[in-house]
């Protein structure tokens, strides 16, 4: 038990050190702009189809689920507003982050872990290039930029899915549906949702990078690092979301 706590404290300290390196590396040359652009392209393109499909289906399901309940209260007219607010404030950011954790976070971890076990990271270090700068910082910055963009995309697709469900169920026109959506949404609805995706992106990339950099030997090490990256990032996304929702409700209002 004592050994376990010692391990936990050591792991926590290592994470703090790893995160600290990012803030130092992000403001210290060399700035690997080309590598960041490459990751934006790779990681973004890698995630777009899955995020689109899942958010489209979720928007559809949400509208289908909400309609019968709202009908009971004679509040069908509020379906667009309710569904859209849920998508923008919660479902879009969190589902996108969980997909990115599974798709991109695991990819970062697996790639870096493979580089670690095949000594590519050591080779980079020995050649005089800081592997943290080149491999981790660039990916973290890329995800910090990507997450808000992917989330906005996810929300557009999700809202379109919910419209389609309403169109199928009641023949609602696009003009009416989107009119309701625009009336219901305020700019302040977007801010907390988009804002928290930056934290999500940071957590996903840092955990993926940390697990990859500290992978054990052999293919088993790569597998374990990848699994641990996805599990830890998913857990942290939910925890951070809970904390940020509490802060938003307390300080900005519902």
């Amino acid at each position: 038990m004592l050994e376990y706590f010692r391990h936990l404290i050591s792991e926590f300290g290592n994470y703090i050190f790893f995160i600290g390196r990012f803030f130092k590396s992000a403001v210290t040359p060399p700035f690997e702009v080309r590598q960041i652009i490459r990751h934006l392209d790779d990681l973004g393109a890698m995630s777009l189809p899955l995020i689109g499909i899942i958010n489209f289906i979720l928007g559809l399901i949400l509208a289908m689920q909400s309609r019968p309940t709202m009908e009971k209260f004679g509040a069908v007219a509020f379906v667009p507003a309710m569904v859209t607010t849920s998508i923008v404030r919660e479902i879009g950011p969190v589902i996108t982050a969980l997909i990115v954790a599974g798709r991109v976070g695991s990819g970062i971890s697996a790639e870096l872990a493979s580089m670690k076990v095949s000594e590519q990271i050591d080779a980079m270090d020995a050649s005089g290039v800081d592997p943290y700068d080149y491999l981790v910082t660039t990916r973290v910055i890329a995800l910090l930029i990507l997450m808000p963009v992917l989330t906005v995309y996810a929300e557009f697709v999700g809202i379109f899915g919910s419209y389609l469900a309403e169109f199928i169920a009641a023949g609602t026109t696009m003009k009416y549906y989107y009119g309701q959506v625009i009336d219901a949404l305020y700019f302040s609805d977007f801010i907390p949702g988009i804002g928290k995706t930056i934290f999500f992106g940071f957590v996903i990339a840092i955990i993926g990078g940390y697990r990859g950099f500290n992978a054990g030997a052999g293919t088993e090490g790569v597998g374990k690092a990848t699994t641990a990256a996805v599990v830890s990032a998913s857990l942290w996304i939910i925890l951070i979301d809970m904390i940020l929702v509490k802060i938003t409700v307390d300080f900005i209002g519902p």
């Binding site: 095949s118 000594e119 080779a123 050649s127 005089g128």
Partner: peptide, 27 residues
């Protein structure tokens, strides 16, 4: 001091030419 690793430790995502140009460009 150069270090030659046991299995070459070539960067998988780069071509042979890019592997060689990497330290020249970065270092």
């Amino acid at each position: 001091v150069g270090y030659v690793f046991q299995n070459g430790a070539l960067y998988d995502s780069l071509t042979v030419g890019e592997n060689l140009s990497f330290p020249l460009e970065k270092v």
